[in-house]
Simulated assay, not measured.
Amino acid sequence: MSKTIAFVFARGGSKGLPGKNIKALCGKPLIQYSIDRALASEQIDDIYVSTDDANIAHVARECGAKVIDRPEELATDNSPEWLSWQHAINWVKQNDGSFKIFVSLPATSPLTAVVDVDSAISQLKQSGADICLSVTPSNHHPSFNMVTLDDERYASLMFNSENKVIRRQDAPKAYNITTCVYAATTDFVMQGKGLFDGKTTAIEVPRERAVDIDDIIDFKFAELLMTEQT
């Protein structure tokens, strides 16, 4: 039977919010929300945390995850996360055996629900796509809100075309990619180099669950939303 393995990729060197991956959010280390989500999903067979940090590794084990030691060269500010994905897949294959579906659950998205994770895995399987992203409706539509500036500071629409969209309701619906969940085939991750190198599908996540923590303002916002839900 083919396995589905979840991963949390958590570096120790966060600059926007130092120590954020294990910073206490409503009484729990931030990373625990992603681990708990994987443990609660009936579609996920195992959960690993890939990290270069001993403190994160300790917390991850305490929360019930297995740990992959990430090489220093894959844990810098400029390291492409895709390479960390490939490293984790190879590590699991060499140490615990092969699996078919790779799931990334970023620690910075604590409001993601188990239903979002399960939906992404199901959509990947049913669609026959290579990867499934999570998206949320965009606050600002690119047909009206995104411009470029030339050398003389004159503005023009970034997405300009002969078929101009005048009314907002006539514009095609736009979405932002979120960091809630990524589900992909291991073959695609190992052979590709980016999210859109193959057949990409997506699930829609409501805005209140699509919070990505990068700095203290994001952290406080997530804390507020969680407090209101209890």
Rank of each mutant, 00 (worst) to 15 (best):
H141L: 03
V103S: 11
Q229K: 14
N90Q: 12
I68P: 10
V205I: 15
I56Y: 04
K199E: 11
N176H: 14
R209L: 10
V147Y: 14
W82N: 02
A6R: 04
G192V: 00
I89F: 05
I35K: 04
S41I: 01
T230Q: 13
L124E: 01
S84Q: 11
P172Y: 11
T227E: 14
T51G: 01
E152P: 00
E162K: 14
A54S: 13
T178R: 00
P80M: 09
P142N: 12
G27K: 10
P137I: 11
S156E: 15
Q126A: 12
N139H: 13
D215I: 00
D212Q: 12
P172R: 09
F188R: 06
S79N: 01
D46W: 02
D151M: 10
R209S: 10
S14I: 00
G194M: 04
N145E: 15
A210N: 05
E162N: 13
L83Y: 07
I56S: 01
G12M: 01
R11F: 04
V189G: 07
L39H: 10
V165N: 12
N145Q: 14
S134W: 01
E162F: 14
T185K: 12
A60P: 02
R168Y: 14
A10W: 05
D96H: 15
D218L: 07
M226R: 11
